[in-house]
Design a protein around this nucleic acid. Structure first.
Lengths: 374, 374
DNA sequence: TGCTATACTCGAAACGGTTCGATTGAGCAA
DNA sequence: TTGCTCAATCGAACCGTTTCGAGTATAGCA
């Protein structure tokens, strides 16, 4: 069942049949009708592989993420599929587990399979596969993170803003000693969140205490261990900000395991909202991202490039809003902890203006402001 | 950069280069070495599309599920990808949203793209795309559910056993009036769970009360509405068994919203475990499935068929064990409900043997057994 | 009536591999 | 030397499309 059969049945040449079926001009209405009917009667469907060979288009896009099992990424995948399937494209899913070698290998396979484009959540490490991608000038859209050594379109969250809002919320609720569970340093999203956090501290005149930042793996286990580490500090932080969804889960488990509760013993706030945040008691406050939208927009961006011929015009970068979802996991530092607050006061310093990326020397001066409202 | 370039560089014919690169016999070690070196020097990678056209193999498998966003399916996807990527296959993900038309359309696209095989969680409705699949004798492995009108390999959970165990657990904890949130009737897994539930009731001499079974959509919303409906009954059930993960979430929300708590006001048990089940307080008891394993085994099964030439030998069907994960959401019916229990007693009847699929007439006799232990 | 522009239609050449059957030549026995 | 076998190599066909350049008929126009 090939186009040859259709052509024969319609009594035309193969090339004419092809033109007719693809709605190209310069084919008489009469012939076009005959060809279409023949195709219908035979139940003809073009062989996409053969077509791909000739047209150099496979209508295949690959999405490379750390792990589809992570709700953040699965929502992203869903969004991408939504955008792509509408236009006849299919989505290939690859899981890297944040492993650069795996990433390289998977990208390689996709390249040989001639995917039309790639949606990538980069591990952050550099390797040949990415270069190969660029060399074949196959469109690439980065998701969630940037890779500084790679110039490509990107769809990201407003990480700085989100982290700033979360931290500010904690500060305004009275926290001064805030633990931060970060993630891989190589991940730009994480660095941005840390930056947002630090900026909020600075803007509120709180000196950053390095021991309060723990760099963990992007897993529940990583968050768990980091949280234990934080809570072992003397004095422990009164609030913990976790820079991704898996890690906040781990943190919750750690808190529970120590026989503590939030927000009474320690306030909890997460980056990236997740379903259970709502079901847990008390529900967990979080900075919500829009993973589905990210996938959707990235998919659209990619298709745009593809159909507009990947014109190497300026790079397009999209920042999607985050929003702080207030739930019940943040409260005024508990009463039994005045000494902690005192301690915190001693280590704070006066605010010194908003913004400004340069690192000013921080003065160890008594902080003047109040503790903040509940 | 084609095999032609490699052949030229190595000073051999194209066909010889092909043989050498594919490790076929009948090529001298000397020539093989020269060809491999040429390929390496040129950075040659075969064009998978061209190869596919000739070999009729694309190394592409599609996974068709309701929604990757559902952790059950994303774990499945991950398992499948695991099995496939090992052997150089890639996974295309398609979301049907339980919509048969969408399923048909997506399968159609995959067919034209010439995927080597399909992993399918069928909506349950019949349509042409499936037949087309069989006609082209492309291997198919069913996941999670069967479609009675379709003869194919399958990897499933022990739904009957799992539902039986869950129900038995409720009964042994003292429940007699058990609400069941079912799902789509067309979904075999759901029917099996209902069957397991009913069998457990029967085996413990409890007459099934139809009003206690609510058929809902497979969503959180569906579970929510069904749960409200159940709790509005007079008297309400003392326990609710929800036949999938999304629906139990909805049920939890409904219970909360009514100002009730589990297990005090109503015991809760779910089919298919999910991460948050553990984090919620009290954590929710559930029948755990093995979605990752299901995907993995299904992928392996498919590859087996593919590489063994899809010999139409007997169908292979795998049932994966389920396990009841005891947590804190099941307890003895609450004290304020003796009348409910009395009521329940009145509607029960003596046990009449285990197993046996035939529906015996149930006798309306006072149930003799005790209430069971906590 | 003849000429040209236009509208269709067609055959053949790609696309980049694999594979089949033919060819070559070396090795060996008679 | 001849004849035969077998391994190594090669050329060409093929997979199923698209597309290009050429060919043909028709209509319009002078």
């Amino acid at each position: 069942m090939t186009i040859r059969d259709v052509a024969r049945r319609a009594g035309v040449a193969v090339s004419t049949a092809s033109l007719a079926l693809n709605g190209k001009p310069n084919v008489s209405p009469e012939v076009a009708r005959r060809v279409r009917r023949a195709a219908l009667e035979l139940g003809y469907k073009p062989n996409a592989v053969a077509r791909s060979l000739k047209t150099r288009r496979t209508q295949l896009i690959s999405l490379v993420v750390a792990d589809v099992t992570n709700p953040f990424f699965s929502a992203m995948a869903r969004g991408a599929e939504e955008a792509l399937s509408r236009r006849g494209y299919s989505l290939i899913i690859c899981n890297t587990d944040e492993d650069a070698a795996k990433e390289a290998q998977l990208l390689d396979v996709c390249l040989h399979k001639k995917v039309d484009g790639v949606l990538l959540v980069p591990t952050g490490e550099q390797h040949a596969a990415i270069r190969a991608l660029a060399e074949e000038s196959r469109p690439l859209v980065l998701l969630d993170r940037l890779a500084p050594w790679m110039d490509a379109d990107a769809v990201l969250s407003d990480n700085i803003g989100g982290a700033y809002a979360a931290t500010q919320h904690l500060i305004e609720t009275g926290h001064r000693r805030i633990g931060l569970i970060a993630g891989h340093v190589l991940v730009s999203a994480i660095r941005e969140r840390v930056a947002g956090h630090v900026r909020a501290l600075r803007d509120h005149g709180i000196r950053r205490n390095k021991e309060l930042t723990v760099w963990a793996g992007h897993t529940s286990r990583g968050g768990y261990e980091a949280c234990l580490e934080l809570l072992k500090l003397e004095p422990p932080p009164t609030a913990i900000f976790s820079a991704n969804n898996l890690m906040v889960r781990g943190a919750m488990i750690a808190v529970r395991e120590l026989g503590l509760t939030w927000p009474d013993d320690v306030s909890l706030i997460g980056f990236d909202d997740f379903e259970e945040a709502e079901l847990v008691t008390p529900p967990v406050t979080a900075v919500a991202q829009q993973p589905f939208q990210m996938g959707l927009r990235a998919g659209e961006l990619l298709l745009d490039r593809l159909e507009r011929g990947n014109s190497p015009t300026e790079r397009r970068q999209l920042r999607l809003e985050t929003s702080l979802v207030h739930r019940g996991s943040v409260a005024t530092p508990h009463a039994g902890c005045e000494e902690v607050i005192e301690e915190a006061k001693r280590t704070t310093c006066p605010p010194h203006g908003v913004g400004g990326a340069e690192h000013k020397a921080l003065h160890d001066v008594q902080y003047q402001g109040g503790i903040g409202n509940a």
